[in-house]
Design a protein around this nucleic acid. Structure first.
Lengths: 160, 160
DNA sequence: ATTTCTGCAAACGATTTGCACAGGG
DNA sequence: CCCTGTGCAAATCGTTTGCAGAAAT
């Protein structure tokens, strides 16, 4: 699935940080490693756990301070899928135009890409006088399980 | 703009509340009056102010306890447009399928309806095994001002 | 009378921030 | 060395909740 190597991500990030006069620290390295060592979504708290598995000294504050940097770099996407926790998605390099479908009950997230949607988004956005930059579409819906059984199996295991 | 009368809203809501064995109180009346006395979006805090203008005794807690009821009734829509504050939209009776476009900078919200988008949403949603219920699309983009001047006039006056 | 509602203030949970020290350049 | 980065713990901010009294049925 990952067509962009971990190395190039690290490289891009190093350039990005260097360009901003930011330093290369063990904690940031660990966070970066954790952030792009998966292609699953995660919360800040989950990223903290993952980063700590690499470097025990990483603190919550540093994760929260580093996340905005990763987002600014363009390699990480911050998703507001409802709920009180932000979700981060490391899959945008490979699928820059993908969107999200979220089950209203179990919050299961499905990523999808659709050229028609892409096209239509652009049309609508322009028609309304906006510039189609940084678009982001979320569709809330009911997953099959919810539709059939009235509740979702995944409901308890989901974190957001 | 408002084709659904305030009276029918009140009626529907009374039935809804009665059906749940809920009581009709002065505070709820004030909140309902405030919530549907406008067709603009508002936050919980803003609704509190509006409701207090009608009945000074309305408290923040009651607003927060009443909002979910109004949402359940189907007359009020809760929007997660990013940011840390939920936004409520009383315009869904008139425009049940409308979506939102949000400026990434000034957070200006534009409502739009588009039959193609509607159709496409349904197709995609079904294709992915979800049921097209309770859909909700948000497009983040840059408004004209932001694009041209690099910042938005509305930036300071916007609340969310 | 019984049960739901309410306001108040304390509790909450995610995120942010002030501070003094640690550690890159 | 200088200045940024860090962990810690306290602070925020929107929202939720426990409680005792108030009001609706």
């Amino acid at each position: 699935m990952a067509t962009v190597s971990r190395e190039s991500v690290r490289e891009i990030l190093h350039e990005f940080l260097a360009g901003k006069g930011l330093r290369k620290t063990a904690q940031r390295e660990a966070i970066i490693e954790a952030a792009f060592g998966t292609n699953k979504h995660y919360t800040a708290e989950e990223l903290l756990e993952m980063a700590r598995a690499i470097d025990r000294s990483v603190s919550r504050a540093t994760v929260y301070r580093t996340l905005p940097l990763l987002v600014q770099s363009g390699l990480l996407r911050e998703l507001d899928l409802g709920g009180d926790t932000k979700i981060y998605d490391p899959n945008f390099l490979e699928h820059p135009t993908h969107n999200h479908l979220v089950c209203v009950d179990c919050k299961k997230i499905i990523e999808f890409e659709d050229p028609n949607m892409e096209l239509l988004e652009n049309c609508i956005t322009r028609r309304l006088g906006f510039s189609p930059t940084n678009k982001m579409v979320k569709i809330e819906a009911r997953c099959d399980e919810l539709q059939l059984k009235g509740s979702c199996t995944k409901r308890m295991e989901s974190k957001a």
